[in-house]
Amino acid sequence: MKPYAKFAVLVVAIIGTLAWLAAGGINETKTYYKEIKEVNAMTKAELEKRIRVGGDVAENSIVREGKEVRFVLTQKELKLPVVYVGTEPLPDTFRNGAQALADGKMRPDGVFQANRIQAKCASKYEGKPQYKVKPPIQDSKAAI
């Protein structure tokens, strides 16, 4: 065989293997981003998928029951009860009012069972900072 043909065979073999691994990897771990609205309207077949739902953690909704943590995700008016059953501890940023992403599946009873939670503080590092601005100092001349 000519060297260039050999190279072609090897290159195709390597890329083929990697593509095969990649396809397998995608099928195993793919997670669908859904909004709460969409989750509530999902059909039975769709409920088998792994989903990632985002929203705000409702104020004072976090309840710890043994190893489980229950809370409610909200997105505008919509609500979704979530139970976290994962082994990893919840991130420090997971608090009332934080933005959270929950990975998991919908249970038949309408509760979302999450095995992974990511959270970030709303409005903290970037975006529009919300400062608690002190009232501006009155014009001193006017006060005199």
């Binding site: 990697l18 990649a22 990897g25 195993e28 771990t29 997670t31």
Partner: peptide, 18 residues
């Protein structure tokens, strides 16, 4: 039209052999 993400196992599966 659907937003789908992949996780660490995807990256590991390819990048460990690599």
């Amino acid at each position: 039209g659907e937003k789908i993400s992949v996780d660490a196992p995807f990256f590991n599966k390819i990048n460990i052999p690599i």
